[in-house]
Design a protein around this nucleic acid. Structure first.
Lengths: 114, 114
DNA sequence: CCCAGTACTTAACGCTACTATGTACCAGTA
DNA sequence: TACTGGTACATAGTAGCGTTAAGTACTGGG
């Protein structure tokens, strides 16, 4: 009822890339889940659900890519502020390499298609 | 030519995009599974398994995106030659739009990260 | 008191690529 | 004949990711 469903193609394409997107956001400056969700929506990912982001944050924390700090909020429950640590930055670098390769290949394919 | 070793990141990123890659290959000219696998490897996807491609071909056929023709081979069992049909081309166009959006966002994020 | 906005959690689910294994056809060769 | 290697396709089982859907909890204004 609420909101248009994310297309199947986008959903599948986000697998693997959404993680990189969030890490890239965190590499600029620390942030908390609610904020990240809002920023993603501003940037055009209008249909990303909150649950998706929180689940992702749990995972990258479990994988040791981020540090977490609880910060009290004036408007609601305490925020969990995530910041990239050293392994997280290395992982993000790796992500950009992988992405670069893929973007390269697809750029080539698209050119050949026309 | 430096083949990227398929790690976890690449595996996840290929979800959604591998389908588009194969459809893009088919949009240039019809091809069969064994051939597509070989071409992917030539293009740097050195670790794509045959099984992955065949499963994908089964899926896009089931989804009505391709036509299939059995063509005898001189060197082995008959080939199943796949070609894009009209829905397949429409789907590929949609794929490029989705990809374009994602590549755009990530390009922006990468720029901000430096 | 209720409600809207803020903020986080998590089980169940669908989809995709991967792994591993199997079948089958053919040419060369010893 | 038997064996090997290259060609060609099929598929069950598995892991991982994003999504859905439901929930908890804190705050300030009507």
């Amino acid at each position: 009822m609420t909101g248009v469903r994310v297309g199947r193609q986008m959903t599948e394409m986000l697998k693997g890339t959404l993680e990189g997107i969030v890490l890239a956001i965190l590499s600029v400056q620390p942030a908390y889940g609610y904020d990240i969700t809002a920023r993603l929506r501003e940037q055009g990912f209008t249909d990303i659900a909150e649950g998706t982001v929180y689940a992702l944050l749990v995972r990258i924390e479990r994988n040791g890519l981020v540090e977490v700090e609880k910060v009290p909020s004036e408007k609601g429950p305490p925020r969990k502020v995530y910041s990239l640590n050293t392994p997280g930055r290395a992982y993000l670098d790796e992500f950009w390499v992988t992405w670069g390769f893929l973007a390269d290949r697809l750029g080539q394919l698209k050119k050949e298609g026309n």
